[in-house]
Nucleic acid binder design. Structure first.
Lengths: 256, 256
DNA sequence: GAGTGGTCTAGACCACAGA
DNA sequence: CTGTGGTCTAGACCACTCG
C-alpha cells in the first residue's frame, strides 16, 4: 500500500474496509481473514490486525479467535429518554416497555431478564437516594436486555427498601405501565427526571456480557426519578455500548 | 511482568499506570518515557506503546513525539443541557454564557471565538430546518471553545437566512442573555428543545483542532430549538471529546 | 491437528522537538 | 544531532474453534 499524506497504512486499510462495509460490499455476517487480506493488500498481518482493532472500536467488525473477523455493523437503536417516562407513552405502551418499541423499530426481537434482590448500593447511588451504603438498604431490579439474543444493555435500578418493602416494587413483574406506574400507585409519582451521562471503557465483566472489547466504549447513564416534593425514589444506572445506541432528549425551554 | 489471569501484559501495564495517575502518583504534567518504563518493567517498548494507546483513548495521557508522554488527566467539565436554555439561567448569567460558568466551575479560564458566515448547511441540518441544502441558505455561527487555551468544544449553529437576515442573529456579538434572547426579541422564543446524541471517532480535522487522536471519541450533539408553534429556528451541532465532558439532562416527567 | 486471531519481541526506519 | 514516539515487518508462541 502506497504512502498517503501521512495517514498510516493501518488507518488506510481501516478506511478502505470501513467504506466497503458502509457501502454494503461486505454485508453483516461476512467473514474476513487477516492473513488473506494481508497478502491481497501486500502488508504484514499485524497491520491488518491493527486496522481491525480500529474497526472493532467503531463496532463495525468483531474478531473471533479460530473463526475469523465478522462484519457486525448495525444501525443504532434509538432511545428517547423523554418519551420513555411520559404519562402518554405509558398509556400507549400496551404493557410493552419503551425498550421493546425501540428494538422492534429496527426489526429485531427484544427480550429482557429481570432479577430482583436486596443489595448494598454503589456509593454514588446511596448518596443520591440518601440511604446508608453499608447494608442491604436498597432493592435492586437488575435488567439485562437483548435484541435478537445480542446483549445490548444493562440497567440496574435501585429503590430504598423503606419504599419498596412489601410493595409491587419488589415483585418480579412490573405490571401494566411499567415500574413507574407502580410508584404512582404508591403516591410516589415521579414528576421530575434527571439523567447524568458519561462515556467510559467497559469493565471486564460488562465487556464480557455485552460481547465487547475494551477498545469499545459504553454510555453510563445515571437516571434519577424525583417526586413532586423533591424526594428521590429511584436511581437507575444504564450501561450500553455507544456503537449500538443513539440518545434523544426533549424538554420545555422554560420549565425551570 | 508475570502472567495474570489471561489479562494481557499491555493491559496490566495500562492498569498499573492508570491507578498511579488516579491516585495522584503521577500528577498532571508528569512526563513519562516509553524506553525507560519498558526497561523498568522488563517488557519491550512496543508493549508500553500499546499500553499508552489505551490510556490515551481514556484521555489520561497524551504522547508527544520528541518529548515524551504527558499525564493529562483532568476531571470532566459538566454540561447541564437543561439549565443552559432556561429563562432563569439567562437572567442569572450576567452576560456570561453557560459554557463560561461550566469551565470556571473547574478552575479553568474559558475563552471562545465566534465566526459568522453564510453557508450551505449539512444535509441533516437542512432537513431539520426545512431549507434548501444547495445554497447559502443558512447563517452559520461557528464557535470554538477553550479552557485555559485547550480546545474543548466545537459548536456550529445554523439559522435559516430567512430568519437571521438583517437581525442581531447575524451580528458578531450575541448580546445580553445570549443568542437565545435574540430569538425571543424577534418573537421567535424557543419553547421546546430537542437534542440527539451519539458518540463517534473524530474526523481528522476535529482531532487536530481538539488535540485528540483517532483512538479517542467525541460526543456529537444535534441540538434544535423550536418555537411554540412548532417551527425549528436553530440547529446547533456540538462536538466535544467524551473524556472532557459529562452531560446532565433534566425534565418534567409529564410534559408530553 | 489445522486454522485463525491475540500478543510479545526485536529490529528498523521515519517524523518531529529541541538544543 | 540526539531523543522520543509512530509505525511496520518478521517471527514466534499461545488460546480458542472446529472437524
Amino acid at each position: 500500500m502506497s504512502t498517503n499524506r501521512g495517514r498510516s497504512e493501518y488507518r488506510q486499510v481501516a478506511d478502505t474496509i470501513r467504506t466497503a462495509i458502509k457501502q454494503g460490499d461486505y454485508a453483516r455476517g461476512t467473514v474476513l481473514r487477516e492473513e488473506e487480506l494481508a497478502q491481497s493488500m501486500g502488508v504484514d498481518r499485524s497491520t491488518i490486525n491493527r486496522a481491525f482493532r480500529v474497526l472493532t472500536a467503531d463496532g463495525l467488525v468483531r474478531a473471533r479467535r479460530g473463526k475469523g473477523t465478522l462484519v457486525t455493523f448495525t444501525p443504532p437503536i434509538q432511545r428517547n429518554a423523554t418519551l420513555r417516562y411520559s404519562q402518554a407513552a405509558r398509556e400507549r405502551a400496551d404493557g410493552r416497555g419503551a425498550f421493546d418499541a425501540e428494538v422492534r423499530a429496527l426489526g429485531f426481537t427484544p427480550r429482557s431478564e429481570l432479577t430482583v434482590s436486596r443489595v448494598t448500593p454503589p456509593a454514588n447511588v446511596a448518596e443520591i437516594l440518601n440511604v446508608a451504603a453499608d447494608e442491604n438498604s436498597t432493592v435492586k431490579r437488575a435488567r439485562r436486555m437483548y435484541a435478537d439474543d445480542t446483549a445490548v444493555q444493562l440497567a440496574d435500578s435501585y429503590i430504598p427498601v423503606a419504599i419498596a418493602e412489601g410493595t409491587a416494587l419488589e415483585a418480579d413483574e412490573s405490571g401494566p405501565g411499567g415500574i413507574v406506574s407502580r410508584f404512582a400507585d404508591l403516591g410516589l409519582a415521579q414528576t421530575r427526571i434527571t439523567e447524568s451521562l458519561n462515556v467510559r471503557t467497559p469493565t471486564p465483566e460488562e465487556a464480557s456480557f455485552l460481547d465487547m472489547t475494551e477498545d469499545q466504549r459504553v454510555y453510563e447513564i445515571t437516571h434519577t426519578g424525583w417526586t413532586a416534593d423533591g424526594q428521590p425514589v429511584e436511581v437507575c444506572v444504564h450501561v450500553m455500548p455507544t456503537h449500538l445506541w443513539k440518545l434523544d432528549y426533549e424538554w420545555s425551554a422554560d420549565q425551570n
